[in-house]
Each structure stands twice: as structure tokens, then as C-alpha cells.
Amino acid sequence: MSRLTDRFAALKAEGRPAFVAYVMAGDPDPETAFAIMRGLPGAGVDVIELGLPFTDPMADGPAIQKAALRALDAGETLKGVLAMAARFREADKTTPIVLMGYFNPIYSHGVPAFLADAKAAGVDGLIVVDLPPEEDEELCLPAAEAGLHFIRLATPTTDDARLPMVARNTSGFVYYVSITGITGAAEANAAAVAPEVARIRAATGLPVCVGFGVRTPERAREIGKVADGVVVGSAIVEKIGAGESPEAVLAFVRSLSDGAKGAR
């Protein structure tokens, strides 16, 4: 068992979907980012996705690209992100933290050192956008060995022939990308998402969280009806980018989590 599997098991017992919030580490600066992160569980967040800033986030829309550059301009580093996770973990022993980003900063740090450091910092899982199953030897397999979940993305282009490959070597949950496109772009459509979630759940036996294209409490409620979890990133990051206070950002997060939790 792990914090992540425990959390999904508990939510299943409660009969409600997980609310997953994404924030970029170090955005707009390390202290403000930490104040927001620390407040997420209190605002109804079940799983935290902590963005690892990268100069060239190829799968992300403008909101998350800008957040990454703000964080980097404020001096954020991989070490800084792990220190932030460790600091959070001192006070919160149960909320799962999933690092989400791109491979190069991890590769540059060195995979074995990164896995050891992430584990020690209290990180529970990894989502690395540019590592498909074809590149599992790079990080996915070593991460599993180190006791970290490697969470896979499934997309509308992941057909039945590919699904077993996507299911292999993964654990924790599956992140279903509800649209073909970048983060924060088109709106997810619950009617189209429902059969996909069922298909992926059946093939993997894992909880399926849906992200990319969920921006409002209403949409979070709709998606929460059909998925095991709802992920919101860009809409939150935009508030941070607009200079809103941690309190205002957390109030918005609360409205989203209330939406997701009112689903069932």
C-alpha cells in the first residue's frame, strides 16, 4: 500500500471521486507557491500534482508554459521542488504528492539520484509527459523499483491495441487526457469521456482521473460523475498568474473540489 492507493481506496469507500489539483512549484515564487500548496488539502484537494518547471513544456498550453517560466525566473530548481515537497510532508503525512513534468531536468539530475531524493522528500508518484511506454527503461521501471508510482497518460489516440501497453508497468492511477490537445485548451465533454473511462478502467484495473479541459466547478461535477477523479490545473494556475492571493486561489480550489465532490 502507499499514500496514493490508500487515498483512492478510501475515496472509493466513501463513494466519491478524487479531486486532484495541479500547481506549478515555485510559481510565482517559492514562498507563495508553498503557501498555496500547504492550503490545498484544507481546500478539499485529495491528490496534489506538483508541476516541475521546464523551459519547453511541449504538451502544455499558455497558462502552464507561463507558470513554468515565472517559476524559473524566480529561481526554482529541481532541488527546490523536492525541498518544497519535503517541507510539505513534515506537516502532512497523508496527502499524496505526484510530480508532473518533463524528462530532461530529471535526466540531468541523474535518474538514480532523482528517485532517491524524490522518495526521501515524500513524493509518491511521477507523471512524465514525454516518456511513453516505449521508453519505460528510462524512468518507469527504475521508479517502480524505487517504490514510486509511475502514472501513465492515456489519450483519445490510445486505441484498444495500445491500451495493454499503457496499462503495463503503471500503478496508482491512470491520467486520462480528455482531449487531443494541450492543457487548458478545449472543454472536456462528459458524454464522450464516460465510455473512455470505462474502457481504460477495465483494461488497467486502476482508478482513472480525467484532466486537460476541466476549468469550472460545473464541469468538475459532470466529469466527477463518470470518472474516479477530476484534475484541474490551468484554471488554478491562471489565478496564480493573475496575481491573486493564496487565500483567493484556495477559495477557487474549494469551489472546484465542491463541484467534483457534489458529483455523486
Binding site: 524528462f103 514525454d130 497518460l153 489516440t157
Partner: peptide
């Protein structure tokens, strides 16, 4: 067959692009 020249090359893309 994995698109590698020694350790270089490969297919480091998001799942959406992989089937393409």
C-alpha cells in the same frame, strides 16, 4: 528498432503523439 543510434535518438513524445 527503437530508433536509437547508440544511446541517442528514441521516441520521447507524449502518449497522444505516439500512435501517430
Amino acid at each position: 528498432e527503437r530508433g536509437r543510434f547508440g544511446d541517442f535518438g528514441g521516441r520521447f513524445v507524449s502518449e497522444t503523439l505516439m500512435p501517430l
